[in-house]
């Protein structure tokens, strides 16, 4: 124990310094910008803030963003669960290729993703003439925005679920099967309850990203005022027009889902800790 002195001192100093550095980085890069957004939004008073949000263009952007996010989050929840289920519970050819594909949106620039959709479905694109002939509008309209958003946010739900479902294995599902449960009963009574918190968190992340997506959407939307502008695009346009108060007012709307996501995550973490801290089996030494 004689040598515990200097080691003990180092053990206290080093973590404290690291913690302080980490906190400083977090404050500078994460907290300060969020606070700044709200400060700027209310800089010219609540009246200007309310005014900016009640502009018809802004409310159209809110509606469009909510619609696009709702559709793409719903779609990606279904896709994500299906993909995670396949990957975690079955072995098949091309499994690792599928895992890589799910990660693809992370590695491809959103702008490129948007361009691909324009090249596929745009007026000069592969399917453009056919779509035009049948009166279907994809680019510069809601369907294109939804497609681009789905592509960009595809990995969020699946990535949350795959490790968890892998770890849980399929023993419980097999048990349910032998007890006579149907496929749907197994899913809703066994699989879903086991993954619900991870799923909820994945959906929240997916939603936050879907609402905030800029690059891909900016390419496919065509930026028609009051029609195909989502909230992030609206922010950019207001900013470019030197309407700082308006831009930050709209931006503050986008910070809200992020804060909600954060709060729910903190809540979920605490909840999980409670579950983990369930009383140990009696008699354990």
């Amino acid at each position: 124990m004689a040598d515990s002195g200097p080691i003990g001192a180092r053990r206290v100093v080093a973590p404290a310094a690291l913690t302080a550095a980490a906190l400083a980085v977090v404050a500078l890069f994460l907290i300060a910008p969020a606070v700044f957004v709200f400060v700027q939004a209310f800089a010219k008073g609540i009246g200007v803030f309310a005014d900016a949000l009640t502009q018809p263009e802004t409310s159209a952007a809110i509606r469009l963003t909510l619609a696009a996010a709702t559709i793409s989050v719903a779609a990606n929840t279904v896709f994500g669960i299906a993909a995670a289920w396949c990957i975690a519970k079955f072995g098949f050819r091309g499994k690792s290729a599928l895992v890589t594909l799910i990660d693809l949106p992370f590695s491809v620039s959103p702008v490129i993703a948007g361009l691909v959709f324009v090249l596929l479905f745009g007026a000069q694109g592969w399917f453009g003439p056919w779509l035009a002939a049948h009166g279907i509008k994809i680019t510069f309209a809601l369907p294109g925005i939804v497609l681009a958003t789905i592509f960009v946010t595809f990995p969020f739900v699946a990535r949350q679920l795959i490790p968890l479902m892998r770890e849980q294995g399929s023993a419980e599902e097999e048990a349910a099967l032998l007890l006579g449960a149907s496929g749907l009963q197994i899913f809703f009574r066994v699989t879903l309850p086991n993954i619900k918190w991870a799923l909820l968190y994945g959906v929240l992340l997916c939603n936050a990203r879907a609402m905030g997506e800029f690059g891909a959407v900016s390419v496919v939307s065509g930026r028609i005022r009051g029609e195909t502008l989502t909230l992030p695009l609206q922010v950019e346009i207001l900013y470019n027009e030197y309407n700082l108060a308006g831009a930050f007012a709209v931006a503050s709307l986008l910070v809200l889902p992020a804060l909600v996501t954060l709060a729910v995550k903190a809540l979920l973490d605490r909840r999980h800790r409670d579950e983990l801290a369930a009383p140990a089996p009696a008699g354990a030494p």
Binding site: A171, A175, L179, G180, P193
Partner: peptide
């Protein structure tokens, strides 16, 4: 498998972790 009426006890039991003991048995 669900029609075979087979009682199976898994090596690690595979109890439904989110259900109470009673609901496990009633499943």
């Amino acid at each position: 498998p669900r029609e075979r009426r087979i009682g199976f006890v898994f090596q690690n039991y595979a109890l439904f972790r989110h259900m109470t003991v009673a609901r496990n048995i009633a499943f």
